[in-house]
Design a protein around this nucleic acid. Sequence first.
DNA 1: AATGAATGAGGGTTCATTCAT
DNA 2: GATGAATGAACCCTCATTCAT
Lengths: 217, 217, 217, 217
Amino acid sequence: MARIAAAARDAHIDARRGELLDAALRRIATQGFDGATVEAIAREAGVAKGTFYLYFDSKESLLAALIERHSLIPDLTRVVDALGEMPPEQAIPLIARAGWRGLRERLTLLRLVLREIPLREDNARLFMERVILPTNRLLERYLDGCVERGSIRALPTLVAGRAFFGMLVVFAITQEIFGGSDLVPMSDEEITETVAGLFLHGALARPNAAPGEDVQV
Amino acid sequence: MARIAAAARDAHIDARRGELLDAALRRIATQGFDGATVEAIAREAGVAKGTFYLYFDSKESLLAALIERHSLIPDLTRVVDALGEMPPEQAIPLIARAGWRGLRERLTLLRLVLREIPLREDNARLFMERVILPTNRLLERYLDGCVERGSIRALPTLVAGRAFFGMLVVFAITQEIFGGSDLVPMSDEEITETVAGLFLHGALARPNAAPGEDVQV
Amino acid sequence: MARIAAAARDAHIDARRGELLDAALRRIATQGFDGATVEAIAREAGVAKGTFYLYFDSKESLLAALIERHSLIPDLTRVVDALGEMPPEQAIPLIARAGWRGLRERLTLLRLVLREIPLREDNARLFMERVILPTNRLLERYLDGCVERGSIRALPTLVAGRAFFGMLVVFAITQEIFGGSDLVPMSDEEITETVAGLFLHGALARPNAAPGEDVQV
Amino acid sequence: MARIAAAARDAHIDARRGELLDAALRRIATQGFDGATVEAIAREAGVAKGTFYLYFDSKESLLAALIERHSLIPDLTRVVDALGEMPPEQAIPLIARAGWRGLRERLTLLRLVLREIPLREDNARLFMERVILPTNRLLERYLDGCVERGSIRALPTLVAGRAFFGMLVVFAITQEIFGGSDLVPMSDEEITETVAGLFLHGALARPNAAPGEDVQV
DNA sequence: AATGAATGAGGGTTCATTCAT
DNA sequence: GATGAATGAACCCTCATTCAT
């Protein structure tokens, strides 16, 4: 019975933490971390100010929880795992589309990360280790497989993978967060296909030239 | 004489504003906009707190001035203008290196932009119009020229240009701002050459296949 | 049966109150009344926060109970009652030693009283009536007997008694509570014998008697 | 000119600090340190809450300033210095009266000290070193002189001096702070003369009995 | 009887902004 | 023009008290 009660309590605690985290993300998205008061976050979650501190040690500790909670990793893991040995010509566009979708669904978190991470060295490190690098390695592993199978040329796959995904991130920042889509609209297809196309073939018109050499400029 | 005095006064005002902006950028870089107090900024500029308000209406108004003041445009304009009709195989690496250098020299501003712009719709719009899009158009123009001359394939050059430069930005964010270089060091060459190489040739091993088609996945 | 149950319940209530009072005294000793939270007191007593309010109306009401509960009276009553008509030359040193011992055993309570009583007029009155004056009257009665028997001179015995005991209190405050014993150590004997000696003979060298000898303390 | 301005500013700072300290003492006397809010203190001093922090680092730092500021030392120094080699029969009553007067004028500070010092180990040490011991040594020096001149018997003068002054302190606590004067009024004379008389002659009726020996009980 | 989640008033502290000098 | 003392709104956090379970 005690066990059941404890389990119920834990569930309740998790639920409340979740509600507070959701509320926090909403406020922080529009007002920034400093701008979102604990009172506002609590009220948005439907509880009183003091209740916040039953679930988080401090406002600061909410940040880490927030960042750890949302990440692209689960999504991308599923997608990349499903690729198996699919040739890059098919896989890369798939990844681009999935990545773009994932980013658009996480714009709020992206705003948060861009804003709050750089000032917090510990969190920055944590974020690199827990979110960016894992995602990056996922791509690296797939690309390494492609290189082994000879379907893509030898290149620093970690760097290349980040460059690939990074292009999507930059469009998310400029078009969605900085409001670029109001000034210069770009369709989702335009973005994902251009990014995928560039990553696969580059921009050169006659790429039959021996690759790699020109890079030496 | 009155005119001369007025001119001198204007010069003085500009100088003071400049000192304050520099001081502000230094403080904001390490503490964020909210964390940098007017008092600290003023003291860093060597004046008293009240003096700040002789040169700026408010702390907020300093932000716009700050963002407008620093941009990559002059640098890149010079570089891209100098390219003329240089073939992309040579030009793209040059641009990548210049862009990377410019970014690394402006990390402070990049931090500021990532942190403060997203929350301020007006500034975001302004930043897109005044900084991102001009830079983007610069590249677009060069790439359009290449397309015309047949040296690169037909692709949405505005999108492609942003993707190209965006790769560099993402490395600046992850490696320099998020501290990735402590965890996974990457040399400047590795970054610029991989980015340039990808943009030129893509990742495929046998890019002699008719380009563009595979993208249709 | 009902009566037995009621008695058992009362005993239980008293026990719980006692545990809470002990716990409270321990917390308050180190952190002060304001610094000791109800939660901490309850936890120290091994019960939950809410339970506290089953036994006390409020945190404030705990104070009165706490002060009333501990007092020197029982100890001193026993000691003074046992004196009977013992001459002051013997009795006063005995009282000084017993008083000193009692004070040292009640330092926690002394801290509490010094801290919390002065701000609470009602409690102050209560404390005077219930603790200080009874103790004082105890001494007064003994001293009055001495005066009657001619063993001490006529003096305001209430005042004198308080002065006597007060000397001990002041050493408890300065040496034990203010930490004077770290700076200027004084032995228990030095304190009790000097106090007793002063009270009996005063400081003068020849109150007609042979001087110097009195130093035998 | 700058020097003059600086001097004026320092004077102003001292004045403001003084006003705040006075105001703080008044509030703290009636409400305790914790009960006296910074806002209330500031308002009592006629300034805004924020102004408080221009003159004190924190509320806590006000305490030390407060305690250091008021002490009996200057008064007593003057009195005791003026005694010279005056025989104790005259000097002790003088000291008792001056000490009593000084204590009554500093009841507020006494309340503060009793309440706030015990919980703050650092302040307790400081208070012993800076206030109690210096006062104590003042008396010690005078008593040592008397012993040398043979006017009082050899006794531990530091202990005796504290016992002497301590009697006055206890009357201040019980009569003035605990409200004893409402229950059992005692005139100033009764207190000072009894204390002085006890210190000089003790309580015994025929102190020509060989003193000291009886103490050995 | 016992619990502990929830509340919200209230406190210390910071800081953008004003204004008299 | 330059200063910096003064202001007070607003924030984070604590904790006595209540009440549904």
